[in-house]
Design a protein around this nucleic acid. Structure first.
Length: 445
RNA sequence: GCCCCCAUCGUCUAGUGGCCCAGGAUGCCAGGUUCUCAGCCUGGAGACAGGGGUUCAAAUCCCCUUGGGGGUACCA
């Protein structure tokens, strides 16, 4: 059974798909899917100066990446100019609009606002009232023949049979103008639902200075689309229980406008990271391996000679340890290059110490004797060494970790060495020992 | 300036007059597991913006103040 619910997402192609726009699209999409209605996409490219084709493409790509498929469209307002002109002229004929010339001599059509009280019956906010006499006679058709936002929006929503207008609450103040237009045309009034906006982490309007604000940026930083969708869904909506991780299917089953709140929400990257980590953990290794390969390649890592099994091992080893693919790359970069960077603090703390050179020499000779260079043999060998020279394991592990990874933090040392391979592990150890010996005071590491 | 919206832990939220001296998540702190870190487990600190009402009873209803956000374009 399909309902007659028809909703739309109507972005203007003046930039990438914004996080706030994505959430608006998501809510419309969820509403349509819950109601077995139609979700359509309309590109509002009526600003000839600012609209670009690249932006349109980026928006479409982001929608697809998020999994927000549309049933109709995309429609382009720039291709419907004749329709708007016709409707504007109709208003002129009825005396509800008039031609107006501004100081620069540009001739446009303005809509004549009638005085009175306008009521919006908002599905989220309840009744909102405006005094229409405070609203000026606004332009509906610009000098260049293009419609303005409020006009094109109403004509299209009516023409496309939109039943529910779900959009950001920054549009609340546009609504009385649009309602006046609906009435002037005698169009059937849709339902309005103004959802709260998403603010930056400091509570101000989300903008470039807050860092990543577009879906594209999150994709490029190695986030999973479902994690982003999950996170966005919980900004302003909740399933009504304590559930945090919620599948798309469940969202569709539970999505109602009644459970959308009125309060604007601040974006929180920390929680998004946590959520992405949760999704990473529940994604099968096989899939993650594919994603990892693709991400690393795009990041400029040469993956041509990397064996599939090796990469799978890497992903398994880090499965519980990384939150985004960028994070994984940062953590494992030392495996892909010989030009590793040594962390200053780690070197000072674990390498520039009494007896470390001797210790590392022992380690060097011990592991050079390990034939089958796997974590099991490595562990047997090094555990035996700690007993032989009577040191705690952590006293051995940390200097070793720093000399082969450059950092004091890594995955398990045996597994890490196995991934690195005997040749490289010994090379790095040798390099460290040599440098520590050569300069006792000014170590160049 | 004028108009409109909003107001629960730092953040996201549950809560729709008694079940709330307010629950969950994240982040933070402490302990445990441990070769480091992460993860995982256990515990902890942390909020109803303020002031008036209404009511036997208010986080929940009303008013004011304050704070935040939005609009006020031939942008969308």
């Amino acid at each position: 059974m399909s309902s007659n619910v028809r909703v739309r997402f109507a972005p203007s192609p003046t930039g990438y798909l914004h996080i706030g726009g994505a959430r608006t699209a998501l809510f419309n999409w969820l509403f349509a899917r819950y109601n077995k209605g139609v979700f359509l996409l309309r590109i509002e490219d009526t600003d000839q100066q600012r609209s670009t084709e690249e932006a349109t493409q980026a928006i479409l790509d982001s929608m697809k990446w998020l999994g927000l498929d549309w049933d109709e469209g995309p429609y382009f307002q720039s291709q419907r100019l004749a329709i708007y002109k016709q409707y504007a002229e109709k208003l002129i004929e009825q005396g509800k609009a008039f031609y107006d010339t501004d100081a620069e001599g540009r001739k446009a059509i303005r809509f004549k606002m009638q005085d009175g009280i306008t009521e919006i019956n908002d599905l989220i906010h309840g009744t909102i009232t405006f005094d229409a006499s405070l609203i000026e006679d606004f332009v509906i058709l610009k000098a260049d023949g293009f419609p303005t936002y409020n006009f094109a929006c109403v004509v299209d929503d009516a023409d496309m049979g939109i039943t529910h207008i779900i959009r950001g609450d920054d549009h609340i103040s546009n609504t009385p103008k649009q309602i006046a237009l609906y009435k002037a045309f005698g169009f059937k009034m849709p339902e309005f639902a103004h959802i709260p906006m998403i603010l930056g982490e400091d509570g101000s309007r989300l903008s470039k200075r807050h860092g990543a604000t577009s879906v594209t940026e999150y994709r490029d930083r190695g986030y999973l689309p479902h994690a982003l969708v999950n996170f966005l869904a919980l900004l302003g909506w909740s399933p009504g229980n304590d559930q945090e991780i919620i599948s798309i299917t469940e969202m569709i089953e539970k999505f109602t406008l009644k459970r959308v709140n009125k309060t604007s929400a601040q974006f929180n990257n920390i929680k998004l990271d946590w959520m992405n980590g949760q999704y990473i953990k529940s994604t099968p290794v096989e899939q993650l391996t594919i994603d990892t390969k693709r991400f690393f390649e795009k990041s400029g890592i040469d993956m041509t000679n990397i064996p599939q099994a090796w990469l799978t091992n890497l992903v398994m080893l880090y499965h519980e340890r990384f939150k985004t693919f960028q994070d994984l790359l940062d953590q494992t970069r030392f495996l892909f290059t010989d030009a590793i960077e040594y962390d200053r603090a780690a070197v000072d703390k674990f390498l520039k110490k009494e007896g470390v050179v001797e210790l590392l020499k022992e380690v060097y000779s011990a592991i050079s004797l390990v034939d089958n260079f796997d974590k099991k043999n490595m562990e047997d060998s090094l555990r035996a060494l700690t007993v032989k020279i009577d040191v705690s394991f952590s006293r051995l592990a940390q200097p070793l970790r720093v000399s082969i990874t450059g950092k004091s933090v890594s995955a398990g040392i045996f597994e890490t060495m196995e991934l690195l391979g005997k040749e490289k592990a010994l090379k790095r150890l040798g390099y460290t020992i040599q440098n520590l010996c050569e300069i006792s005071e000014t170590i160049k590491l």
